Simulated assay, not measured.
Amino acid sequence: MSVYSGDFGNLEVKGSVQFAIDYMESLKELHVFVAQCKDLAAADVKKQRSDPYVKTYLLPDKGKMGKKKTFVVKKTLNPVYNEILRYKIERQFLKTQKLNLSVWHRDTFKRNSFLGEVELDLETWDWDSKQSKQLKWYPLKRKTAPVALETENRGEMKLALQYVPEPSPGKKLPTTGEVHIWVKECFDLPLLRGSHLNSFVKCTILPDTSRKSRQKTRAVGKTTNPIFNHTMVYDGFRPEDLMEACVELTVWDHYKLTNQFLGGLRIGFGTGNTYYKFNSLEPNSLGDEKTKV
């Protein structure tokens, strides 16, 4: 599964990469030792050379916190790195991770070009085997369809939605009303930073993506089952507006100066464009309290 942006279609995928992985118990770190690549595709066909580097992710984290990369080796199809990429993570959480290692050509003026990738499922990896810690050559593969993150369940959200008409003196039917969105809690959120989590929920009513449409809860730390009990109120909605509106709720992990996307969902009759793919965080029904917008 490829999770990054770039140019995937222009270059043939060929060659292989040599690397090894090991878990350092004393440091609580996963080490990815990237040794070298050979027989890579040439981004510069005329001169038969590329400027390759290696990038890794610990999936399902596809953000900046989960990305590591080597230095760029210029003008070669057989780069040597001998570099260790480190991830601070508890060993038990590696069972839920996949290591995605990809090779790229660095282009200063255009989008970087994809040269191939390797993916290892760490759920069944034998960390105590000496053979598992040895350097191995892996053939580079083409980009696979990015479907896993889109269909994977990454937790549940318990919420309620309600439309409250505003009374209009002298008129039989109200002309506008308020949309109330009560976010009570989430369950079983994924851990992307070992045992650390500091989650909050953002809300937008599409197709309006302006700043006034964005609201959020407070951050709740140290739990994968945060309780928010937060109500967001949006006013000025006509009954006919509800047929076009779509509530977009996303869950984030706040860490230092960055926010890492955990999952999200959409509820409503309307549609809208966004930068994220959903179906990864399931709503938990509140029975009679849940009213569809």
Rank of each mutant, 00 (worst) to 15 (best):
R86W: 01
R86S: 15
R86E: 13
Y87N: 12
K88P: 03
K88Q: 14
K88G: 14
I89D: 13
I89S: 12
I89M: 15
E90L: 07
E90C: 04
E90R: 01
R91S: 10
Q92I: 06
F93V: 03
F93A: 06
F93D: 10
F93Y: 15
F93Q: 13
L94V: 11
L94Q: 10
L94G: 11
K95S: 15
K95Y: 11
T96H: 05
Q97I: 01
K98D: 10
K98V: 00
K98Y: 03
K98M: 06
N100P: 00
N100H: 13
N100R: 10
L101I: 15
L101R: 05
L101V: 15
L101M: 15
S102L: 14
V103T: 14
V103P: 15
W104F: 08
R106H: 14
R106C: 10
D107L: 13
T108N: 13
T108I: 07
T108C: 04
T108Y: 03
F109W: 09
F109C: 06
F109H: 11
F109E: 10
K110M: 12
K110V: 10
R111V: 03
N112M: 04
S113K: 15
F114N: 08
L115V: 05
G116Q: 07
G116L: 09
G116P: 04
E117S: 12
E117D: 05
V118C: 09
E119F: 00
E119N: 05
D121Q: 09
D121E: 11
D121F: 00
D121G: 02
L122N: 02
E123C: 05
E123N: 09
E123K: 11
T124A: 04
T124Y: 00
W125C: 06
W125R: 00
W125S: 03
D126R: 01
D126A: 06
W127A: 08
W127I: 03
W127Y: 07
S129K: 04
S129L: 09
S129N: 06
S129F: 04
S129Q: 06
K130S: 11
Q131V: 06
Q131C: 02
Q131L: 04
S132K: 00
S132T: 01
K133Q: 12
K133M: 09
